[in-house]
Design a protein around this nucleic acid. Structure first.
Lengths: 332, 332
DNA sequence: CCGATTGCAGCAACCGATTGCAGCAACCGA
DNA sequence: TCGGTTGCTGCAATCGGTTGCTGCAATCGG
C-alpha cells in the first residue's frame, strides 16, 4: 500500500483536496453524497490522514506525554497502562517518557513534546521536580500532576495519604498491634514525605509511639530497615511495620526473610500502593490500595478541563484496604 | 518564550531561511561566520526546529515505536528502560506502545507510527503475533523483533533458551537435584514454548525424567503449579523446579508459601529473566539472567543495519546465572 | 418574478521546515 | 586579463493537510 496523500483521493473522487479534508474533519460541511463517495475512495485507496501534516497546520496534536521517573517501578507501569487506555478512549496517543529522576530530562521532554504540539502533558514527578519551575517550561502551563499533592496552580490527582495511613493503622490495631513502625522510602519523594507526615500525625493523635525506621536511599531502604529491626532488642521491636510503598515492603520482607525473620508470624508488614505484584509475593502483601485506574482517567479529564476553563482542579481520591497475608494478629 | 519559526531567526540574522536550515542540518555547507551568527541568534531567540515540519518534509522522523504486550510486566519495563536510553543515544525518541496482547493493536500502532514517518520499529511480540503478517503492514518491513527466535526475514535479538535451561539444570544438579520439574508460563508465548522445548530436549539427553507442571494460563500458572505440587505424593515430588520466567517463579513461590511449603528448604525454585525485582523477593530469586541491557542496544543496531544493507540479522545472546537464595542443596 | 439566503465546493494562502537549482563574488592558473 | 572553479547564499517548489473567503446554483419569501 503505497503512501496516499489527500490529493490522490481528491483526484480519484473528482473533488478538490479541501473537500476531502472537510469530509474527514468537518463532516457536516460537505454534502452527504459527496462525503460518502470520498470516504469510499479513501477506503479503497487505503488512505489515512497524515497526523504530522495535520498537527503542523492545526498547531495541535493528539500526542500526550506521560512523564515518569522510572518505568521499571511497577507502580508507574500500572499507571502507564491505565493512562494509556484512558488516553486512547479520548483519542489521544500516550507517549511514555522516562526521566530517570532528572529534572533536566523532564523539562527536555516537555519542550520536545511542546514542539510536537502536544495539547497537554501528564507528569508523575520524581523527587526533585519543582512545580513552579515546571510551569516555566513551554508546556508547563498545560500539565497535570499525578501522585503529588500541592497547592500550586497546576491540577493534581492524588490519593489521601492520611486516610491511607489511618486505614493501615486501624487494620493493624484491630489485630492487636500497638508497636507499629514506619519505613520511609526514598526520602525526597513527596508522597513518601506526605505519608510519613500522616503517620507521625496519627501516632501523635493516637498517643502511640512513632517508630520510624528511616532507611534513606531507595532500594536499600528495606535492607537497612531490616538491619535496624534485628538489631533492636526483642521486647522493643515493633510488632508491625508499615512501608512507605509496596516496593519498599517487598524489599523489607525479602531482607527480613534473609535474616530469618518470618512474616507475618514475627512481624506484620503492610505496603502502600496496591500493586498487582503484591498478590505474587511471599507472603502475599496486605496493603493500602490506590485506585490507580481511576487516577489515569481523572488525570486526562483534569487536563481537558484545564484547557477549557483554565481551572486547575485538585482531586484527591480515597484509598482502600487490600488485606492479604502479610499481616496477622500480634504474637503474644 | 513564544513560538519561533525559522523565518524569525532568518529575519533577525539577516539571511534567508534556507541558510538557517542549512546552518542546522548541513553545517559544512554554510560559512562558519554566518553559521556562528545564526546559531547565536537562534540561541537568543530560544529557537528550536520543529520536529513535525522537519519530519514532514524529510519523510523520516526520529520516533521509534517499542511495542510490548504489557508494560506492567517488569520484564518489559526493564526492556523499555534500556531501550529508551539506547535509542536516546542514537538520537531517537522511543514511543512506548502497549498492545494488551492484541494483534490488531500491534498493527494499528505500526501503521500509525508509519504515518509519523518512524524510521523503523521494535516489537516484543505477544503470544499471537504472526511475523509474516507483521511484515505485511506498512512499517512491517522495517521492524526488529526482540525476545523471539524465528527464521523469518525480520531481524531478531533473543537469548539462547537452550543454554539458559542448561545453566539452570547444571546449577541444580550441582546441588544434588535429580527430580527437576518445569513450570511453563503463558503457553502461547514463543519464548515460553522455546524454553519448554529446551527443557524437554535436555531432560531426554540427560536421561532425567521430564516433569512438566503445565499450568496453562498466565498469572495463575504459579497457583496451579503449586496445587499440583502439593497434591503429589511426597516421594514423587520434584526437589527443584524451573519456572518459565521470573514472574511465574514469583507466583509459584507465593502460592507454595501460602500452602506452607518452604523455599528453598523443601523445594528449590529457579526463574528465568533476571529481573531486578528478584533481589526483592522472599527468598531472593536464583535465576537465569538475560542481558536485557544489551538487547536494547543491539535491537537498535540491528534496525540501523537493516536500513543500510537490508540485511536481516539474527543475534542470539548468552544468558548467565544469577545465584541468589531460592535454591539450595537437595534435602535428604 | 426578483432579491436574499443557504448549502456546497473550489481557490489559494499557510503551517515550518528542506533541497535542487541558479546566481554571484572571490579566487585560480595560464 | 580572462574563462573556469569554488564557496556561499537566495529562490521557490514541496511535504500533506486546513481554513477563510469567494462563487455558484438552488431554494425561499414576498
Amino acid at each position: 500500500m503505497a503512501e496516499m496523500s489527500i490529493d490522490d483521493v481528491a483526484a480519484r473522487a473528482g473533488v478538490h483536496r479541501s473537500t476531502v479534508s472537510r469530509a474527514f474533519s468537518r463532516p457536516e460541511a460537505v454534502n452527504p453524497t459527496t462525503r460518502q463517495r470520498i470516504l469510499e475512495v479513501a477506503e479503497s485507496l487505503g488512505y489515512q490522514v497524515s497526523p504530522l501534516a495535520q498537527a503542523l497546520r492545526r498547531k495541535t496534536s493528539n500526542l500526550v506525554p506521560l512523564i515518569v521517573p522510572d518505568i521499571t517501578n511497577p507502580f508507574y507501569g500500572e499507571l502507564a497502562k491505565t493512562m494509556a487506555t484512558a488516553a486512547a478512549e479520548k483519542g489521544y496517543q500516550l507517549v511514555l517518557c522516562v526521566t530517570g529522576g532528572e529534572v533536566a530530562q523532564t523539562n527536555a521532554y516537555l519542550t520536545a513534546l511542546q514542539g510536537m504540539y502536544a495539547p497537554f502533558g501528564i507528569v508523575a514527578p520524581s523527587t526533585s521536580v519543582d512545580l513552579d519551575e515546571l510551569r516555566s517550561v513551554a508546556l508547563g502551563s498545560r500539565v497535570v500532576v499525578v501522585d503529588r499533592v500541592d497547592k500550586a496552580q497546576v491540577p493534581t490527582v492524588t490519593v489521601d495519604s492520611a486516610e491511607g495511613i489511618a486505614l493501615a493503622v486501624d487494620h493493624l490495631r484491630g489485630l492487636g498491634h500497638r508497636r507499629i513502625a514506619y519505613v520511609s522510602g526514598i526520602s525526597g519523594t513527596y508522597t513518601s514525605r506526605d505519608r510519613l507526615a500522616a503517620y507521625e500525625g496519627l501516632a501523635a493523635k493516637l498517643e502511640i509511639p512513632a517508630m520510624i525506621l528511616d532507611a534513606g536511599a531507595g532500594s536499600e531502604a528495606g535492607e537497612r530497615a531490616a538491619e535496624l529491626f534485628v538489631n533492636t532488642a526483642y521486647e522493643e521491636r515493633p510488632t508491625a511495620v508499615i512501608a512507605a510503598n509496596d516496593m519498599v515492603a517487598f524489599a523489607l520482607i525479602s531482607s527480613l526473610g534473609a535474616r530469618g525473620v518470618s512474616i507475618p508470624d514475627e512481624v506484620s508488614v503492610m505496603g502502600f500502593d496496591g500493586l498487582e505484584l503484591g498478590s505474587r509475593s511471599n507472603p502475599r502483601l496486605t496493603t493500602v490500595r490506590q485506585p490507580i485506574a481511576d487516577m489515569g482517567a481523572i488525570a486526562i479529564d483534569l487536563a481537558e478541563q484545564l484547557l477549557n476553563d483554565g481551572e486547575a482542579q485538585h482531586v484527591v481520591l480515597a484509598p482502600d484496604l487490600l488485606i492479604r497475608a502479610s499481616t496477622a494478629e500480634v504474637p503474644r
